[in-house]
Computed example of a mutant assay.
Amino acid sequence: MKTILLVVGKTVEPHFITAIADYVQRTKRYLSFDMEVIPELKNTKSLSEEVQKEKEGELILKALQPGDVVVLLDEGGKEMRSMEFADYMKRKMNTVNKRLVFIIGGPYGFAPKVYEAAHEKMSLSRMTFSHQMVRLIFVEQLYRAMSILNGSPYHHE
């Protein structure tokens, strides 16, 4: 199984770029994992939020492949503790044949057609974080899940 974190727009803050790259590399020791970036829309000032979501949605759907298991990182999704997420990843590694794709949308969320394409929704917290921070939190939690499953001392109960 290959795991993908699909994001809209590149990370721009240097401290986030460094930290995200670190956790992506650490995670690759345990799992086939990549972060894919969909380019941000240009000239969005003249577009409504709905139009932006629709256009981003088209780009997201284009990036998906047949057989992908799609998980939206969404405030309305299921919350999990780190140990539960590790168990979730273990189940996915045993059942997903191709790609497990986690998606962080744009600033206004997901278009309805992206919700329709999704298999699940997951929430990292009830709090709101910047999209760049969500990327870092997710890759850290994915690394933590893999370290739990592999008996690494990174996570403490």
Rank of each mutant, 00 (worst) to 15 (best):
M89S: 01
Q25R: 12
A21G: 08
V96A: 04
D74L: 07
V37I: 13
E36C: 10
L59Y: 11
E40T: 10
V114C: 05
Y88G: 02
M93P: 01
A117S: 13
G105D: 10
A19F: 08
L31W: 00
N94E: 14
E54Y: 11
D22Y: 14
T95D: 10
K42Y: 05
D87S: 15
M80T: 10
L73T: 10
M83A: 15
A19I: 09
A86M: 05
S82Q: 05
D87C: 11
M89D: 02
D68Y: 06
L31G: 02
E84C: 08
E79G: 14
Q65I: 10
K113S: 13
E79H: 13
G57V: 00
S82I: 08
I104W: 02
S32F: 02
R91S: 13
L31H: 01
S82C: 07
L100Q: 04
T27H: 00
D22F: 15
M80K: 08
I60T: 01
F85A: 10
V114E: 08
M93A: 14
M89A: 04
N94T: 12
E50A: 10
A19C: 09
L59K: 12
Y108K: 11
K42H: 07
S48D: 05
K53H: 01
L72M: 03
Q25N: 14
T44N: 00
V51Q: 13
L72Y: 02
V24D: 00
I103Y: 00
V70G: 06
S32Q: 12
Q52C: 04
E50I: 05
Y108P: 02
M89G: 04
P112W: 12
T95I: 09
I104A: 02
E116M: 08
L59G: 04
Y23F: 14
S82E: 06
K45D: 08
V69G: 09
Y30S: 01
V51Y: 07
S32M: 07
R26Y: 05
P112F: 09
D34S: 09
V70N: 05
P112Y: 09
L61E: 03
V69Y: 14
R29Q: 03
L59E: 12
L73P: 06
R99K: 05
Y115H: 15
I60V: 04
N94L: 13
A19T: 13
K92T: 04
S48C: 02
N97G: 15
G67C: 06
T27L: 01
L100D: 01
V96F: 04
